[in-house]
Design a protein around this nucleic acid. Structure first.
Lengths: 124, 124
DNA sequence: CGGCATCCACATGGATACTG
DNA sequence: CAGTATCCATGTGGATGCCG
């Protein structure tokens, strides 16, 4: 590989532990990146608000995803009110630091996938 | 959508088309990010070379992944030699521009997931 | 080397309905 | 509002073996 004998990190080479793979296993699920993206932009959100903002995800899948993200310590759930029962989902420190990842995804998507105004076939 | 009248982009809001989701559906699969990462670092690679560098992926799964990535125009396969049959996988322009995404994932992973030297439990 | 064929297990997503 | 309960279809990955 590129740097073998010195003190530099050799992650992600050969059989070593790989940060890319590890990160991928945490966030590579259909709705995870968008959920994080929405929470980054619009701060804490309730369940329904989140569902509205995340395209056409069903409540079951959203629920599963949120649970998964909580287990991974990327988001937190807090009960804001008991009477009119309200909760809020927000990013943890860890989670919010994924901002560069989702931003990069967003930028790439804007450049390479379907620009709404233009109907040419960069669609994929 | 929320902001209808001005010139601002409204991607990823409500029912609109979302670059994050779209990008996610392209690269969010277990081995895709690493494959791209390896190709970014070590240029064109043969099938076996790639398999060696991508942890413990089986040939079937690697094959499936590479096919998927080709369909999405993120990588290309070229036959380099016929006699000793050799192929090379390389990134397309589109694909190589995913560099910011995988780099961001790599950086996040290094910061938040298992530092090899240290055995504390930031593991998951 | 560069795969494909098979078979299998489980993860994940989707639709629908219902609840406190 | 904030979910849960089912059920089901498909996606996705893994193991093993074989082939030109």
């Amino acid at each position: 590989m590129h740097d073998s004998s010195d003190g530099l990190q050799v992650w992600c080479a050969g059989e070593e532990w790989c940060p890319v793979t590890s990160t991928a296993t945490l966030i590579c699920r259909k709705w995870h990146p968008v959920i994080i993206h929405r929470l980054l932009n619009d701060g804490p959100l309730g369940f329904s608000a989140l569902q509205d903002q995340v395209d056409g995800v069903s409540s079951k899948v959203l629920s599963d995803s949120l649970e998964d993200l909580q287990e991974k310590k990327l988001i937190e759930r807090s009960i804001v009110s008991e009477q009119p029962f309200r909760v809020e989902y927000s990013l943890t420190e860890r989670g919010s630091e994924l901002e560069p990842v989702v931003s990069a995804m967003e930028n790439w998507g804007k450049r390479h996938l379907q620009p709404p105004e233009d109907e040419h076939s960069g669609r994929f």
